[in-house]
Design a protein around this nucleic acid. Sequence first.
RNA 1: CGGGGCGUAGCGCAGCCCGGUAGCGCGCCUGCUUUGGGAGCAGGAUGUCGGAGGUUCAAAUCCUCUCGCCCCGACCA
Length: 570
Amino acid sequence: MRTSQLLLPTLREDPGEAETVSHRLMLRAGLIRKVAAGIYTYLPLGLRIIRKVEQIVREEMNRAGAQELLMPIASPAELWKETGRWDYYGKELLRFKDRHERDFCLGPTHEEVITDLFRREVRSYRQLPLNFYQIQIKFRDEIRPRFGLMRGREFIMKDAYSFDKDDAGARLNYQKMYDAYDRIFSRCGLNFRAVEADTGLIGGTSSHEFMVLADTGEETIVYSDHGTYAANVERAEVLPPDDETREELRPLQNVKTPACRTVEEVTKFLKVEASQLVKTLLYSTGKDTVAVLIRGDHDANEIKLKRLLGVTDLELAGPATVEKITGAPVGFAGPVGLKIRIVADHAVRTASNVVVGGNQADTHLIDVNCPRDFQVEQFADLRNAKAGDLSPRKDGVLKTTKGIEVGHVFMLGTKYSQAMNASFLDPNGKECLAVMGCYGIGIGRTAAAAVEQNHDDKGIVWPFPIAPFHVHLISLGQSAGVIEAATGLYGALEAAGLEVLWDDRDERAGVKFNDADLIGAPYHVIVGDKGLAEGLLEVKTRKTGVKTKLSPAGIPAAILAMASSDRSAS
RNA sequence: CGGGGCGUAGCGCAGCCCGGUAGCGCGCCUGCUUUGGGAGCAGGAUGUCGGAGGUUCAAAUCCUCUCGCCCCGACCA
């Protein structure tokens, strides 16, 4: 492809709308353009990258025995009402009516549609197992789209759905997908890790997320320093403290803490550690308000809390509710004398002589002890794991890192097959529910994650397998010799099976070099009069910046050799 | 939805506080020179100042309302 025939609008300056590396570079390199918040056009070069990732995904899905199909973007409300997700999914589900006033939505995921297909078309255990996948545009009306392709409202996803006759089969399919994901992200040249995860809105019995490790990731991962345990922090179990010994209990006292509301303010004012403080969080469940006690140096985990309380909606109570229940403004709530249901994290049980809110403005209580001064209905694991905690498998101590979730595999069990009566006949003629799994990969997010992980101050450094082009051919000047040599090389490189972007514009060398660095093809070949005069042309490896002088005829073979050694090294 | 910020030429921004001619850099067009890391000179084009109301002799600037976008929190591939 010649740049003179390609829409490749690179930007010299950082666009004002982008802050994240991948978002900024993808805009600057002319890969994407925004149409509306979280909605993007893939420009020709950007689409090539998307297609590369899709192709790797497709090959590995096919290899794992999944079959490709394509479901519609729009689906009727009836299917969603069958599983209850028409209501449960909330505002993220973009709804609309057709001309006959029938309710439809844009598919945020396709369990309903595929399960409907299954129940219509599959009758017998002989047809199982089955695994279907598609690569298709999804729409989720995200609360806050951000970071370009990282979290769009419209995005390209590979989603797969497996159907098995029993749990053992489902586990096998799950494992196959897990292994396929491992290969996919390895082939994309990413540094990633599979972690245990929460199942969220999709539901089901267990799941793993595939996380690309990057400081800019939105997810926090905890992993054992000496073992194999790794989990999303929202999922990671925290073991109850094994040391039950407590300090000698001192008598409770009332202290004035003027305008000290936050943990930080209170600990600073009273000169105590955050771990000596217990915060009292009031959560509204929609039905009632529950007090949740968490140690001052810990963070509440709302997913664990929802599970304990058996609710799906949960939010911190507003100032009015807090005042009504505690009689004090926000910041001074405490468990002593509180008349509502109280649950607490395990760590609160073994803490002694703690500081809590006094349920009175500018007042805290110190040397408070449970159960002497207040009672808790239930102790449970309600906090986020943090660095330094014991691994739940007791195979080491937890460390934390940031990650970008690029893939997620779920064991669904019979959640959807039951709701939609997707059954088959077993050898005895008995009707059985299909055991399902579902498996997603964010295609655009994978590309964006690759940029987060592979860039420098000049631009993107694409991993070879998903690079939009393998070779960026840069011709300098418009002399007959240069044009002839570049034309010859272009043909020779393509004949060698390499994808070549030839910058044939009448631009100055600096402009071309800078654009090439920005776009980030793995290898750059520079054709100029200077090189031609000595019969040697420069080949630059984008990642290392190393330039090698080679005779033109030897360049295609040399690049193929470099590519294969780079790939085996990584 | 809560909090913070922004909307002025294709892009990045200044001007707004203190009302009076719409400006800078990059890009774009023409010409000459230049040509291996974002060229120089000369000339040129480009704006419903996000939109609607209002105040005023006069509004990019002040007021009200509205729309869009970005960033921080509650959701997820």
